[in-house]
Design a protein around this nucleic acid. Structure first.
Length: 286
DNA sequence: AAAAAGTTCAACCGCCATACA
DNA sequence: TTGTATGGCGGTTGAACTTTT
């Protein structure tokens, strides 16, 4: 017995798309926009399931897609981001304009993972790291911390916290039950944690917009010199909530809209700027 | 030249989170 | 609060293609 197909309705086509189908899908989306994938096939006159249409559009037909010829710079960036984020392909793809998560995932599985395994923790990898470091030094910018190849990634999939999320310096508050803290972990682990939490936050009236890319979230934290080691990730627990409104915990770090009004000297004294710089460095484009 | 083995990548799958009635 | 529809994600599959024997 095979798996149950996602669209079990009889008469739906599966497998490779024909040029004719591509044409129909493209022109329909150009005319009516993306979305409502479930009903799109019948509206467009396609004998495909909505999921299949969505995937075909996002991974192949979208006009802004770059295909093939992944450059050395992109290659390097994928490797570095994968070290930080693990198999979070959509996040990695978000930093590579025109590339899809599927393409990056395939590229990783067919090219890069083998390269990494070959290199392991060996000299070649260290040399590569040294090369990055030397080039970066020439720019007189802070030297980024180069991520170790040994592993790092805390979770491969974002989890969600419900409600507003605050970052506080308190060691006494109950952490969000969905969250894991990595006190004392490597910068990479910390970043992965921040990415996870940031990734999971909700918009629009909350403190962080889920659509923001990781680097902007990270930059926001950098504005406050927040040390992740000193933070608990909080759910909507009353004491913390009160703090946001000027209550008992005056050191709550507020983000987004409130951030502009509360830009004070850093509440925490930490140094993850290097990692931020590392992330923002697009291999050679300094 | 042909068969076998290996590789690539588009497409599909199940699962999960969110939106909404 | 609950149930359902929908969108999005990462893992996996398998046909097509390439390389090796």
């Amino acid at each position: 017995m095979g798996r149950k197909p996602c669209c079990s309705r009889d008469g739906l086509r599966r497998g490779a798309w024909t040029q004719e189908e591509d044409k129909i899908l493209s022109s329909y989306i150009k005319a009516h926009g993306e979305g409502r994938w479930r009903s799109l096939p019948s509206r467009a006159g396609l004998k495909r399931c909505g999921k299949s249409c969505r995937l075909r559009w996002l991974n192949y037909l979208r006009p802004d897609i770059k295909r093939g010829n992944i450059s050395q710079e992109e290659d390097d960036l994928i490797i570095r981001l994968h070290k930080l984020l693990g198999n979070r392909w959509s996040l990695i793809a978000g930093r590579l304009p025109g590339r899809t998560d599927n393409e990056i995932k395939n590229y990783w599985n067919t090219h890069l993972s083998k390269t990494i395994i070959r290199q392991g923790n060996g000299q070649e990898q260290q040399n590569q790291n040294q090369k990055y470091q030397m080039e970066y030094l020439k720019t007189e910018k802070p030297v980024p911390i180069l991520i170790e190849t040994s592993n790092v990634v805390v979770r491969t999939k974002a989890r969600r916290c419900t409600g507003n999320v605050f970052i506080t310096p308190s060691q006494e508050e109950e952490p969000c039950e969905n969250a894991e803290t990595n006190k004392g972990g490597s910068e990479t682990a910390q970043y992965a944690e921040v990415a996870d939490h940031m990734d999971s936050m909700k918009a629009p009236d909350q403190f962080i917009n889920a659509d923001h890319e990781i680097e902007s979230w990270w930059d926001a934290l950098m504005d406050f010199n927040v040390n992740v080691n000193d933070c608990n990730w909080m759910d909507e627990s009353p004491p913390v909530h009160n703090a946001a409104e000027g209550g008992e915990h005056d050191q709550v770090v507020m983000l987004e809209s409130e951030m502009d009004e509360t830009r004070n000297p850093p509440v925490f004294d930490l140094d993850l700027n290097d990692l931020s710089a590392f992330l923002n460095w697009e291999g050679g484009e300094l």
